[in-house]
Simulated assay, not measured.
Amino acid sequence: MSENASKSPFEELTLSGLATVVWNRRKVVYQVTLLFVVLGVVVALVSPKRFSATSTFIPQVGESPSSQGALGGLASLAGFNLSGVSGSSDVPPALYPKIALSVSFQKALLNAKIHVDALDSAITYQEYYDEIYSPGVMESVKDYTVGLPGKLVKALKGEPKEVIVQEITGIVRVSQEEYSHFKRLNSQLKVLPNEKDGIVTVHFEMPEPLMAAEMTKFSVDLLQEEVIQFKIKNAKEQLRFTEERFSERKKEFEDAQMKLANFKDRNQNLNSAYALSQLQQLEANYNFYFDVYTELAKQVEQAKLQVAKDTQVFSILQPVTLPIEKSNIRGSFVLIIFTMMGFSFSIVYILVSEYFKRLKLQSQ
């Protein structure tokens, strides 16, 4: 009796014996698998549609020797040399996802214009999710299960009060509503840099194909604009400063030129030493401002060339196209997964129940 009790209930069964156990209870396999198939059909039907649009581009980091030589030749014709001018640092593709996660970038995405099938005019991304979008059954279930702890904590703490504060330079305020939009944007927008090939791929997922394509195009354009502005910031600041000084010196040069012209008109025949001294002084003053004016004019052109040189160029490899198929899991694939889950669960259920049944008989 003790020897039999020490044996496992399935110890004497072979693989064919286990198969026989399952076959004898095949009706359970059919029922459980059919139940999971029905669940799979329901999940496939109620799952919200999502479409993902894609665009790929190459940021031209740095400048090639040929372009630098052409620029140097153009600069030499203008009368100055660019060898001493250092441009701003390049933005590597690995930093592009960080830029896409910045608050200023995501705030701009909230104001992106999109077209909804049910509307005649375009609305912003934020308006769509605040006023039009209604979550599907699966999203509602997920929101009330996975997000339930957060809702309970929020209910205990109460709604955050609106705080009016003075605007502070360098500090960006984010409202609770904007923060909820940011969390959705982080799941919809994917910026994937390929450091080996030097390419950047942008994906954006939305409930409708046109909306996905528009948000992808807006994200790519905004990302490229942010990179360009970051890269040429120093060069543009130098250009602005040089142009201001140039405008000041231009007025001084024109005043000196006018004074010299007026003096010559009033003194056609210079006989006195005092008049000659005044003429020499006016000419020296004119030559001084002329030299300053000419040098600043060269520096303005040099600064403009530097801005053009530092402006990063992007080559589009894959333009944004309107997605045709859904980006989420297909209904047929969902059905296959649930069928396999149902079949596996039924087998496990039969073996476990048979184990405890034999264990009970063995203990008697």
Rank of each mutant, 00 (worst) to 15 (best):
M1G: 08
S2Y: 08
N4M: 14
S16P: 02
S16L: 12
T20P: 00
K27L: 11
V29A: 03
Q31C: 05
V32E: 11
T33P: 10
L35V: 14
V38K: 00
G40I: 09
V43E: 05
L45M: 15
S47G: 07
F51W: 06
S55M: 01
I58K: 04
P59A: 02
G62P: 09
E63T: 12
S66D: 14
L74Y: 15
A75F: 09
A78Y: 06
S89L: 15
V91W: 00
A94I: 14
A100Y: 03
V103D: 01
V103H: 02
V103R: 04
S104L: 12
S104P: 01
Q106T: 04
A108H: 03
N111M: 10
V116D: 12
D117Y: 08
S121R: 11
A122T: 15
E127G: 03
Y128S: 03
D130V: 14
D130N: 15
P135S: 11
G136R: 05
G136M: 09
V137P: 05
V137T: 13
M138P: 00
E139I: 04
S140D: 04
V141R: 01
Y144T: 13
T145C: 08
G147L: 07
L152Y: 04
K154A: 15
I164V: 13
V165L: 14
Q166M: 05
I168V: 12
I171A: 03
F182C: 01
K183Y: 06
N186A: 11
N186D: 13
L192N: 12
P193M: 05
E195N: 15
E195Q: 13
E195I: 15
E195T: 15
G198Y: 08
V200E: 00
T201D: 01
V202I: 09
F204E: 05
M206L: 11
P207W: 06
P209H: 11
P209S: 11
K217T: 10
S219T: 12
D221A: 01
E225V: 00
E225S: 07
I228G: 01
I228S: 01
N234Q: 12
A235C: 11
R240T: 14
T242D: 04
E248G: 03
K250H: 07
E252L: 12
A256G: 05
A261S: 12
N271A: 08
N271E: 12
S272E: 06
A273F: 09
Q281I: 06
Q281S: 13
E283N: 10
Y289E: 08
D291R: 14
T294V: 09
L296P: 11
L296S: 13
Q299A: 06
Q299I: 01
V300I: 01
Q302C: 03
D310K: 07
T321F: 13
P323G: 10
I324Q: 10
V334C: 02
F338N: 07
F338H: 06
M341I: 13
E354H: 03
F356W: 12
K360M: 02
Q362S: 03
Q364Y: 03
